[in-house]
Simulated assay, not measured.
Amino acid sequence: MADLANARVLILATDGFEESELFDPRQALLDAGANVTLASIKTDPIQGVVNDSEKARTITPDLTLDAVDTEEFDMLLLPGGVGNPDKLRMQERAVEIVSEFMDDDKIVAAICHAPWLLVEADVVDGRRVTSWPSVRTDLENAGAEVVDEQVVIDGNLITSRKPDDIPAFSKAVIEALQSELAEA
Results as ranks from 00 to 15, higher is better:
L38E: 03
E54M: 13
T43G: 00
D24N: 14
R89P: 11
L65H: 10
A67F: 12
V36G: 00
A94D: 01
D69E: 11
D66H: 10
G33S: 08
P45A: 08
L65G: 03
L76I: 05
P61N: 12
E96M: 08
G48P: 01
M75H: 11
P79D: 09
D52T: 03
A34R: 01
L30E: 05
Q47W: 04
F73I: 03
L30A: 06
P61V: 00
E71Y: 15
A32P: 06
N51H: 10
V50C: 01
S40R: 09
L78W: 13
R93I: 01
P85Q: 12
T70N: 11
G33C: 03
R93G: 02
L76H: 02
K55L: 11
V68D: 04
M90A: 14
T64M: 06
V36S: 01
D66F: 12
A39V: 01
M90S: 14
A67D: 12
N51P: 00
T64R: 06
R26Y: 15
G33L: 11
Q91V: 15
V49Y: 12
G33H: 06
G83S: 06
A34G: 02
E72T: 08
I46N: 05
Q47D: 00
R89G: 00
N84E: 07
D44A: 15
T70S: 15
L29I: 01
S40M: 10
E54F: 06
L78V: 06
A56E: 01
F73L: 04
A32T: 03
D66P: 12
D52C: 07
N35P: 09
N35T: 07
D86A: 08
L30Y: 09
T58S: 14
A32N: 05
K55S: 04
L77M: 11
A39N: 10
D52N: 14
L65A: 09
E92W: 09
T60A: 09
G33Q: 00
L88N: 06
E96P: 02
S53E: 14
L63T: 09
T37K: 13
R89N: 05
D69Q: 15
P45R: 12
R89F: 13
V82E: 09
K87G: 11
A56P: 00
E72W: 14
R26Q: 13
D86C: 04
M75W: 06
E71R: 15
T64G: 08
D69N: 15
D24H: 13
K55M: 07
I41H: 07
A67G: 02
E96W: 13
F73T: 00
I41Y: 12
M90Q: 15
L30I: 12
T64P: 07
